[in-house]
């Protein structure tokens, strides 16, 4: 009998495994839905989410760095802004010059050590600087949206970078990329706006672009709280819709959307002049890209 004892124990263990689901409701009653997401109720999910967000933010910053060929830029400090406002030093001019983390020799107290740093770190005078081709950063956008699919900015910028130039195949790829982003963020005004822009401006397919912007308009109208970026996108949605309705000779709809938009954004000059607005020229298109970046 003793020889078979381990076998009996194993059999009991396996049997209890089968019985467990039957008794589970008794020992662990089903929790009522709290309406919270997994990351709000599970520490591990929250931790993983934090990790993903941090990695994505880091990648976002690195992308910016690569676009400047490794030269680290920095914004003005509060103190510098304050000094600028007081007019003691032209802080604004500092900004225009392209303020780098490693300072220029005239703003460096370190002497030789500063010269050494300018020779060893990726440093150059960034006054009127240009950027490296955003195409080189494309895999990074892919990487960051893979790690954090809810990172709308990554989808939007990645889509914009893909759609650069005049290659129709690239435009298709951009649409596919953005659609993938939309699947992960079905209520994203930012992504819808970018899809609509690509369809309207790059593919000149106004018929497909209008429903996308309408979808965005509908989402926006039902969204109670919006952050600054979403508000900006929502405003763009109205601008594009008025322009597209005008281009497709639908003056009533154009008027209606413009009026609705002006109720939400009363100071918007584009909307107020929407009746007279033209489709954007090539230059406007580039401006839009710059704005995106």
């Amino acid at each position: 009998m003793r020889r078979y004892f381990p076998l009996i124990v194993c059999a009991f263990a396996i049997a209890s495994g089968f019985v467990a689901p039957a008794v589970e409701p008794e020992v662990r009653p089903k929790a009522e839905a709290s309406g919270l997401h997994a990351h709000e109720t599970h520490a591990s999910a929250s931790l993983l989410g934090q990790f993903r967000t941090s990695i994505t933010s880091w990648l976002w910053l690195r992308t910016d760095l690569y676009l400047h060929n490794g030269v680290e830029m920095r914004p003005l400090t509060d103190q510098e802004l304050e000094v600028g406002q007081q007019g003691v030093t032209s802080a604004e001019s500092l900004h225009k010059e392209g303020l780098t983390v490693v300072p220029a020799a005239e703003r460096d107290f370190r002497g030789t050590l500063g010269d050494i740093e300018r020779a060893t770190r990726a440093y150059k005078n960034m006054e009127g600087h240009s950027h490296s081709s955003p195409l080189m950063a494309l895999p990074l956008y892919r990487l960051m949206t893979w790690i954090e699919p809810t990172f709308e900015e990554g989808w939007r910028t990645g889509g914009a970078v893909l759609a650069m130039g005049t290659d129709p195949h690239q435009h298709e790829l951009a649409i596919d990329f953005l659609m993938e982003g939309l699947k992960a963020n079905p209520k994203s005004l930012m992504i819808l706006n970018q899809i609509g822009f690509t369809l309207a401006v790059k593919k000149k397919d106004y018929g497909k672009a209008i429903p996308i912007f309408e979808q965005a308009r509908n989402i926006g109208l039902h969204t109670k709280v919006m952050n600054e970026a979403d508000q900006e996108s929502f405003r763009d949605v109205y601008r594009w819709l008025t322009l597209l309705y005008r281009e497709t000779n639908q003056p009533e709809k154009q008027q209606m959307v413009a009026t609705e938009g002006l109720k939400i954004f009363p100071d918007d000059v584009v909307l107020s002049k929407s009746g007279e607005a033209q489709m954007p020229t090539h230059k406007d298109e580039e401006d839009h890209h710059d704005h995106d970046h």
Binding site: R74, T77, Q79, E80, V83, T89, L94, P103, R107, D108, F109, R110
Partner: peptide, 8 residues
């Protein structure tokens, strides 16, 4: 930090 502080 020192470099940034020095700018002002």
């Amino acid at each position: 930090g020192l470099l940034m502080a020095f700018s002002t």
